[in-house]
Design a protein around this nucleic acid. Structure first.
Length: 475
RNA sequence: CGGGGCGUAGCGCAGCUGGCUAGCGCGCAGCGUUUGGGACGCUGAGGUCGGAGGUUCGAAUCCUCUCGCCCCGACCA
C-alpha cells in the first residue's frame, strides 16, 4: 500500500479514484465500464438498502422482482421513453445458439415491464394504490464511466406505483422524495437541495421529475435520487386501467423513484478528505475499530483480555478488532482513517493500567481518554455527535459555496473562479438553459422548492422570470 | 466518436539515439528485532517488456498494424 493519497485539492477525480480503490470499496472489472463492488463497499450498500427498505415498508410498499430481460417492443411503447433510452440500451439478439425472434433489452429501468404487469393486476379502484419496489441491477451503455458514479451496470432500487388520481400520484412522488431527503440528510449526513427538474433534464416519459441534489467536495452537484410523477403516459402506453366507483374505465396515474449505488459516490465525495473516506456513523460498515497495542507477550495477553471486555460492552455497535501482528498501531490508524471508520478505540498497557481506553474520532481527529465504566454510553453519544457534526460541516460547505445572483457576468465569474451552486432567476426557456450550459458548462440541477413571489429578471435573457433555478457543474 | 496521455513483476516507475544475465521503490514470503501516528535488518519468490507482423547478427528499445486503459469533450442515475 502506497502511503499518501493524492490531495483532494490537487486533483479531485484522481483522489476519488484512488480512495475508492485503496479503501477497497470497489475495483475495475475485466468488462469495460463495469465495476466490482468489494465487501467493504457492498456492506455500505447493504446498510443503505436496510435503511431505505425500512422507510419503504413503513409507507406501505412491498418488494417484488421483475425480469432482467424486456421485450424490445415494450420499450417502444412510450414515445419519450424510447427516445430517451434507445442510445443506451444493451440488446440481446441471441439465446441458446439461436437468433431470437424478438430482441430482448437488458433493463435500463423497469417502467415498461412493470407497466405491462400492472396492466394485468389492476382491475378495480379497490386494487389501488399499488405500491411496489424492487432492488435490482440495471444496464445503461455509457460512454464514459467512473466507479460508482456512472457504470454500465449499477445497482439500485426502483419504486413503481399506480394510483387512481393525479393528486394521489403527485402525493406519492413527493412522499418518496421526502424519504430520500430524510435518508440523505439523517442517515448519510448529506445536505441536499430539493426541487424539480427542468423539461430537458427530466426522466424520459415523466410528467415531472423531482430530485435531491448534493454538493460534492469539488463544489460540483450530484443528483442523489429522483422521484417521477409519470402522469398517465405509461398507463396509456401499457393500458393500465381500472374501473372506478361509477363503473367507468379510467387510466391509472403512475410514479417511479430510484436511488442507486451512485449514492455511495456521493458519500465518498461529500465527506472524504485528504486522509481518505469518512463514513457517516449510521451507515458505516464498521462504526468502531479497536486497535490493541502491546510490546511483550505478557502485555499482549492483558490487552487482549481487556479487548474482550470492550467487545462485550459494545456489542450493540458494528465493531471490529484489528489485532493483526504484522502491522504497527500507527499503520493501522492511517489505514482505518482511510477507510473512514468514524470512531477508533486505542487500547494499550497504559490504558489497561488506568482502566480506560483512548477514543479517536475520524471527523475531527480529536483523541480523548475514556473510562471503561460507561464506555457504551460514551461511544453512543460520540457516534451521534459525529453524525451530526458531519452533516453540519457538509451543510456549511454547501451554504458557503452557494450564491444568489441576478447578474450574468457575475454568474460567469463565480463559476469560473470559485465554482459552486448558483441560484438565479430563470425564464424557463430551454434556449436560455442551453445557452448557459454552452457558456459555462453549468446545468440546471433543479428548480428548488419553497419559492415565493416574483423571481426577477432571467439571468440570461432578462425577461421576467417566475422561478429561480439552481445552476451548477454536475457529475 | 473527436482531442490528449499511457501500456515493462501485484502496484508505482526507470531503462528506449538498437547491445550482452531487464532494473529500482513499495508490496509479497521466511527468519529475527520491533509495536502509543504509516518500524527495521537479512534472505527470497515473482517479468512471453499489452498483442501480431516487419527491419536486423541482435529488438523492451526502430517501423507498421492491432488491442486495452486513463484524462478532457458530446451522452447520462
Amino acid at each position: 500500500m502506497a502511503e499518501k493519497l493524492t490531495p483532494r485539492s490537487e486533483d479531485f477525480s484522481k483522489w476519488y479514484t484512488e480512495v475508492v480503490q485503496r479503501a477497497e470499496m470497489a475495483d475495475y472489472s475485466p468488462v469495460r465500464g463495469c465495476m466490482v463492488i468489494r465487501p467493504y463497499g457492498y456492506a455500505l450498500w447493504e446498510n443503505i438498502q436496510q435503511s431505505l427498505d425500512r422507510r419503504f415498508k413503513e409507507t406501505g410498499h412491498q418488494n417484488a422482482y421483475f425480469p432482467l430481460f424486456i421485450p424490445y417492443s415494450f420499450i417502444q411503447k412510450e414515445a419519450e421513453h424510447v427516445k430517451g433510452f434507445a442510445p443506451q440500451l444493451a440488446v440481446v439478439t441471441h439465446g441458446g445458439g439461436q437468433e431470437l425472434e424478438e430482441p430482448l433489452v437488458v433493463r435500463p429501468t423497469s417502467e415498461a415491464i412493470i407497466g405491462h404487469m400492472f396492466a394485468q393486476w389492476i382491475r378495480s379502484y379497490r386494487d389501488l394504490p399499488l405500491l411496489i419496489n424492487q432492488w435490482c441491477n440495471v444496464v445503461r451503455w455509457e460512454m464514459r464511466t467512473r466507479l460508482f458514479l456512472r457504470t454500465t451496470e449499477f445497482l439500485w432500487q426502483e419504486g413503481h406505483t399506480a394510483h387512481a388520481t393525479y393528486e394521489e400520484a403527485e402525493e406519492e412522488t413527493l412522499r418518496m422524495l421526502e424519504i430520500y431527503r430524510d435518508f440523505a440528510e439523517n442517515e448519510a449526513a448529506i445536505p441536499v437541495i430539493v426541487g424539480h427538474k427542468s423539461e430537458s433534464e427530466k426522466f424520459a416519459g415523466a410528467l415531472r421529475t423531482y430530485t435531491i441534489e448534493a454538493m460534492m467536495g469539488n463544489k460540483w452537484a450530484l443528483q442523489a435520487a429522483t422521484s417521477h410523477n409519470l402522469g398517465q403516459n405509461f398507463a396509456k402506453a401499457f393500458e393500465i386501467r381500472y374501473l372506478d366507483r361509477n363503473n367507468q374505465l379510467q387510466y391509472c396515474w403512475t410514479t417511479s423513484w430510484g436511488l442507486s449505488t451512485r449514492f455511495i459516490g456521493a458519500i465518498i465525495m461529500v465527506h472524504g478528505d485528504d486522509q481518505g473516506l469518512k463514513m457517516p456513523p449510521r451507515l458505516a460498515p464498521i462504526q468502531v475499530i479497536v486497535v490493541p497495542i502491546w510490546k511483550s507477550d505478557e502485555e499482549k495477553e492483558r490487552v487482549l483480555t481487556k479487548v474482550e471486555e470492550i467487545k462485550g460492552q459494545l456489542s450493540d455497535f458494528r465493531l471490529k478488532v484489528d489485532d493483526r501482528e504484522e502491522y504497527t498501531p500507527g499503520w493501522k490508524f492511517n489505514e482505518w482513517e482511510m477507510r473512514g471508520v468514524p470512531l477508533r478505540i486505542e487500547i494499550g498497557p497504559r490504558d489497561v493500567e488506568a482502566d480506560q481506553v483512548v477514543l479517536a474520532r475520524r471527523d475531527t481527529g480529536e483523541k480523548m481518554p475514556a473510562p471503561m465504566a460507561r464506555l457504551s454510553e460514551q461511544v453512543r453519544s460520540l457516534l451521534d455527535d459525529i453524525q451530526v457534526n458531519m452533516f453540519r460541516m457538509a451543510k456549511k460547505f454547501m451554504d458557503d459555496n452557494t450564491y444568489h445572483l441576478d447578474d450574468y457576468e457575475e454568474f460567469k465569474r463565480i463559476l469560473e473562479e470559485k465554482g459552486g451552486f448558483i441560484i438565479a432567476p430563470w425564464c424557463e426557456s430551454a434556449e436560455c438553459e442551453a445557452a448557459i450550459k454552452e457558456d459555462t458548462k453549468a446545468t440546471i440541477r433543479c428548480i428548488p422548492f419553497g419559492q415565493e413571489g416574483p423571481a426577477g429578471a432571467c439571468i440570461y435573457c432578462g425577461k421576467e422570470a417566475r422561478v429561480k433555478a439552481l445552476f451548477a457543474r454536475a457529475f
